[in-house]
Amino acid sequence: MLHTVNKSPFERNSLNTCLGLVKPGSAVLLIEDGVVGAIKGTAIEDQLIQAMQSCKLYVLGPDLAARGLAEDKLLDGIQVVDYGGFVDLVAEHTSVQSWL
């Protein structure tokens, strides 16, 4: 199952709710304002590191770049994908849950 999150974790609870309901082996893709959660040294870093023990985390590169966040700022283990990679993730997983 693929989960997408498009909200900043510092403003809304979408990511938190998502991480509470992901099953091991799922993938979580951060898009739009959600990408700001993917950076090293944030207040939610530990939560993401914990989530990555059982899930894969991805971030949409174009949204990251648009917000002036360089890829070298990303938390280790988070993979960057472009829109084509987003499409591949959707195709690879049997269902998609968008945490809006």
């Binding site: 992901v22 099953k23 799922s26 049997t94 269902s95 849950q97 968008s98 945490w99």
Partner: peptide
């Protein structure tokens, strides 16, 4: 979480 994982189509 288990019930959601069984779904085919999730409308949000």
């Amino acid at each position: 979480a288990d019930i959601m994982a069984e779904q085919d189509v999730l409308l949000n």
